[in-house]
Each structure stands twice: as structure tokens, then as C-alpha cells.
């Protein structure tokens, strides 16, 4: 028992998990237990926690892809725009605005939307891995232009759709649990298996720590980068589908706006070093849940939504500082000086 505990506490996801539980407990106490109440209506589970999971599903998916990218010392700030593109394509197809020959087929819409996300990801990966542009610039291109492309697809309008099948992506239930949860489990499960059961994870950490040395041991760094940016793009497309199914339409201006910051924050909270290196996808997913629950909590406490953004930005800087060696040295030096003063 003790051994299991020790082994558990060594895992990267341990600390985020504790933080998450504390946030949940805090909410439970503030709401006098109402927070934890789950009710079953029509065989479907409802409750605040279920809301967090459902609303956080996009973020969990994005955080999964973002973890791998941040582990290489890169970043992908185009995920929000890719979500917009994916939503725009899917909704326009369901609506019959584009590709009328599909007759609003939901399956075709989903496939094409994910395909578009994948292509966007390949584009990012190409710029980063082959043209060797800094990831922030490479993905910023799509971040700005992507929203433009989405606007061009929807001809600058907000597309609304009526399709119960499509709504299911966000609002559906299987065995009483919300459908997005299953999407998360499937995609994150895939990532965890892919990075853990193959040598992909080891190679990724190696590339993140020292790309030159990794190249010199024979790792195909270019291909690795291409792969992770592609995955990130495809995942963002799925998140875009969930988002558009949630709002029952495509709003290119606001879909996924600013979510890249949340995803980076989630990964940072999960304890992955943003400079690259060691990573843990489960930890990032818990990080995403934390970000989502912070949002919920802060809103529940009556703080205006606008402050959340400021809070998140500050949080990122604080976490980065806590990871910075120079900052640690500074703090330790301070402590030692204080101790010396006390000692003498």
C-alpha cells in the first residue's frame, strides 16, 4: 500500500491531481455540497462536475497535442484558428453551403473537417521542420490567416445548423456519460499508448532536451516535428467540431479564441517544462481540467469573466518562473542570505 502510494507520488500527474482535488473540494465547501450533486435525468448524468468535464473536453484534447509540441520546445498558437476552420467546414457542409452534393451528410462533414485540421497541421509542421521557422512565427501565420480562411469559407457570416446528429458530438450521451468524454478518452488514450508503448515518447523527450544530439543518434527530428504538429492540427479540428456542435453553428470570430493560451497553461500546470524535455500527457489533461475548473470556480465566485484571462496570463508567468533555473537560484540565494543573517 505504502509502496503504491510512493510510486504514485513520484508520477508527474500526482501534483496536478492533488491540486484538482483541492479545487473540487473548495467548490464543494463553498457551494455547501451542491457542487458534487449528480442527478440522473432520462438516464443521463447531470451535475457541475459533468459540466466541467464536458466543457473541458476541448481543452483536454488540445492539451494532449500541445504537450508533445511544448515538449520539443515549440508551440502551436494556431489551434484556435484551426478549430474555427474545422467548425466552419463542418457546419457549412451540414448546412449545404459548400459541397452541396454531400446533402448535408454529417459523416462527410466530420471527415472533411478533420482532414482540413490535419492539412493545417502538416502546413505548420512543414514550416517548422523543413523551412525551420521559429514555431511561434510559423503557427502565428495560420493563427491569423486561419481565421481569415474560416471567414472566407462561411463568407463572413455566422452559420447556424439544425442537425440532431451533429449536436450529438457535444450534447450526446452514451451509457449516461457525455459523449465528448469518450472522444477525450479515445484521443488521449491513443496518445498515451502511442508515446508510451512505442519509443516515440523517448525520442520526443530527447529532441526536446537536445535536438542536435538527437539528430546525431539518428532520430529523424524533422519527421517527429511534422508528426506532432500534424497530430495537434487534427486534434484541434476535433475540438472545433465539439465547439461548433455546442453552439450549434460556426462563429469564425469567436470559435476557439484565445484557447491556445489555455492549452499552454494546462500543459504548464501539468508540470511539463515549457523549455522542452520531460512531458506527461495525463498530467496535461488533468491540467486542462484544472484550468476549466478554475474558470468555473472564478465565475461561481462572482468574479467578472474578464479577470480570468488576466489571471491565467499571470499564472503562466509564475509557473514559468518556478521552472526557471535562474529564478530558483535567486530564491535559494535569498533564503541562504536570510538564514545567514538569522544565524549570526
Amino acid at each position: 500500500m505504502r509502496e503504491t502510494w510512493n510510486r504514485l507520488s513520484e508520477k508527474q500527474y500526482f501534483r496536478p491531481l492533488i491540486i484538482f482535488i483541492i479545487i473540487l473540494l473548495f467548490n464543494g465547501i463553498v457551494s455547501k455540497g451542491e457542487f458534487f450533486t449528480l442527478s440522473i435525468v432520462d438516464g443521463h448524468l447531470y451535475g457541475r462536475i459533468i459540466d466541467i468535464v464536458r466543457n473541458g473536453s476541448k481543452l483536454m484534447i488540445l492539451a494532449g497535442g500541445m504537450t508533445m509540441i511544448l515538449a520539443t520546445g515549440g508551440t502551436d498558437i494556431s489551434v484556435g484558428s484551426i478549430m474555427a476552420i474545422s467548425g466552419a467546414i463542418a457546419c457549412s457542409i451540414v448546412n449545404g453551403n459548400i459541397f452541396p452534393s454531400f446533402n448535408g451528410n454529417v459523416a462527410a462533414a466530420i471527415i472533411l473537417a478533420i482532414l482540413a485540421g490535419t492539412v493545417s497541421g502538416i502546413w505548420n509542421g512543414f514550416l517548422v521542420a523543413k523551412i525551420k521557422i521559429q514555431p511561434i512565427v510559423a503557427t502565428m501565420i495560420l493563427m491569423v490567416a486561419g481565421r481569415g480562411i474560416a471567414q472566407l469559407i462561411t463568407r463572413g457570416k455566422i452559420v447556424t445548423i439544425t442537425s440532431e446528429t451533429y449536436y450529438f458530438i457535444n450534447g450526446g450521451y452514451i451509457c449516461g456519460l457525455p459523449f465528448p468524454l469518450f472522444i477525450v478518452l479515445f484521443l488521449v488514450g491513443f496518445l498515451v499508448l502511442f508515446t508510451g508503448r512505442t519509443a516515440f515518447g523517448l525520442f520526443l523527450e530527447s529532441v526536446g532536451c537536445n535536438p542536435t544530439a538527437s539528430k546525431y543518434v539518428g532520430i529523424k527530428v524533422d519527421r517527429m516535428l511534422l508528426a506532432i504538429y500534424t497530430l495537434s492540427g487534427a486534434f484541434a479540428a476535433v475540438a472545433g467540431l465539439i465547439e461548433s456542435a455546442g453552439i450549434k453553428g460556426a462563429d469564425c470570430n469567436n470559435a476557439g479564441l484565445g484557447i491556445e493560451m489555455d492549452a499552454i497553461l494546462a500543459v504548464a500546470i501539468g508540470g511539463t517544462n515549457l523549455m522542452g524535455g520531460r512531458f506527461s500527457i495525463p498530467a496535461s489533461v488533468i491540467g486542462a481540467l484544472i484550468v476549466q475548473s478554475i474558470t468555473t470556480t472564478v465565475l461561481a465566485l462572482g468574479v467578472p469573466a474578464a479577470y480570468i484571462r488576466v489571471l491565467k496570463a499571470l499564472l503562466i508567468i509564475i509557473i514559468c518562473l518556478s521552472q526557471s533555473k535562474q529564478f530558483k537560484d535567486l530564491v535559494i540565494k535569498r533564503k541562504m542570505i536570510n538564514r545567514k543573517v538569522v544565524g549570526s
Binding site: 498558437i77 467578472p304 488576466v310 503562466i316
Partner: peptide, 23 residues
């Protein structure tokens, strides 16, 4: 001084300022 990556710092700066705008 803390060797943070410019993109993270200025990205956070970007969000901070935007957030303050809305505040």
C-alpha cells in the same frame, strides 16, 4: 534574467493586456 522563452513571455503579455482591456 530568468531565461524564459520570449514567445511565452510575450504571449502571456499579450493575454494580460487583452484581458486588462476587457476589465
Amino acid at each position: 534574467y530568468f531565461k524564459l522563452q520570449p514567445f511565452i513571455v510575450t504571449l502571456a503579455g499579450q493575454f494580460l493586456m487583452r484581458g486588462l482591456c476587457v476589465v
